[in-house]
Design a binder for these strands. Structure first.
Lengths: 233, 233
DNA sequence: CGATACTTTGAAGTGTGTCAAACTCTGTGG
DNA sequence: CCACAGAGTTTGACACACTTCAAAGTATCG
């Protein structure tokens, strides 16, 4: 029996992975040859920050969190990747260890690419190199935004921005939170309790309505004002 | 009369720039041909976050801060670059606008590389592409660290880590702060007053001694414990 | 249906930001 | 070389956003 992903199994092919986009058929076959499948269970650790890396991953299905943990138990989620995204690529090109840890948020299928094999592919295929550069640049943009957000914005602003992001991703003002709220808090750089209280305040002011993991955006323009800091909660 | 930089004019050549490291003589000449020199005064704005980019820069001398500003006047310094570093490269490869702003911390000489010209060079020279990938990966590592630091560590921990970084860079336990303390605060994700108070507490506990912009590390192991969070201030 | 994971709420504590004022360097021009 | 202006720094009193700790409540899944 085939494994069933929580996220309905959209068709996956290597040529849909943006890292491999536009590559000639022949190169994609070569990539298929060197890719090593790996199945990880929900909650399973994939690698830890500081660990020596032997290669990187592409997500075939499921979702993976990239995070850093402090000794006091708090953790900061750096990013959440799902189908078609790569992760763990930094030590393929710079240094030897992973800068952050990775853990499966649900049962996920991964493809592992060995450092050496991949580097030799990239040498022969300039387009693959350019794809990689564009992806890394995009991640820099994201991370610069994250640094600024964490340091310059307060929790209500960050949460508002996050809800608007979800709305634009899901193309609807009726949102379904795909993650437990504790994980969302960790992504926003805060804790569960604070997130809960902030959501309640937003609901009290009728910016949103909330029933469990379902959130309705009632007043989008106010949410936008909150996100940009023009307005206080 | 030649312009005099505050940082004594170390010799500069394109082949010392890590982006261009290991390139054949011929390519370096081509780079020299397309590079446009630009002189910026202390405090001068080079570009703003959100602005359309036409290319990126390499620092020939001086120093440049990359930062994001909030409407309330607070700013977060993302990085400070000096001789041999590139900056503003993200929109060359992804998107069209700068993710952050850039301003000269002192009179600086820059080299500007036009987006289109550079992209055509990189297509012909795989080594240049690999250098770029390695540099971008290194920046991702830095930024991941910064996100984690801002969210997981308190000001004393961040400051301790910063002082240790300075000590290792300057290869001495007698430090000189190259920046005004307000700028350092902005880099650490806090404000001048808090930085001042934290430094005083460190001095009171005889972890450091401070005279103006000169700081002596008195107890390095305690500073390391502070940085790792094993110890409180 | 029961166990476990997740979420909410309250009360109290703490680190950091804000505002305002005084103080101290630093470099420049007289 | 001194005086001065402006930038940079320190300090205090206060406010407040956020975390911590603890407990109860609610979903969720096998």
């Amino acid at each position: 029996m085939e494994y069933q992903e929580t996220t309905a199994g959209q068709p996956f092919s290597l040529s849909n992975v943006s890292l491999f986009h536009g590559l000639p058929e022949e190169q994609v076959r070569e990539l298929t040859r060197i890719a090593v499948p790996r199945l990880v269970e929900k909650g399973e650790e994939i690698f830890q920050a500081g660990e020596e890396a032997r290669g990187f991953y592409v997500v075939k299905s499921g979702s993976i969190k990239i995070y850093r943990a402090a000794m006091n138990g708090k953790e900061q989620i750096i990013h959440i990747w799902s189908q078609g995204d790569m992760f763990g690529e930094v030590p393929v090109f710079q240094g030897t260890t992973f800068p952050a840890s990775a853990r499966a948020l649900q049962r996920s299928k991964l493809l592992f690419f060995q450092r050496k094999a991949f580097r030799s592919l990239i040498r022969d295929e300039p387009d693959l190199g350019m794809n990689m550069i564009a992806l890394l640049a995009g991640r820099l943009r994201l991370l610069v935004g994250q640094v600024a957000t964490l340091s310059l914005k307060e929790v209500p602003q960050r949460l508002a921005a996050y809800l608007l992001l979800l709305a634009s991703t899901q193309e609807s003002d009726e949102l379904r939170l795909e993650l437990p709220k504790g994980q969302i808090a960790s992504y926003l750089g805060t804790i569960q309790e604070t997130l809960s209280r902030t959501l309640r305040r937003m609901a009290e002011q009728e910016v949103i309505a909330m029933r469990g993991r379902h959130i309705s955006i009632l007043d989008k323009s106010q949410l936008e004002n909150l996100a940009s800091g023009q307005q206080q909660l």
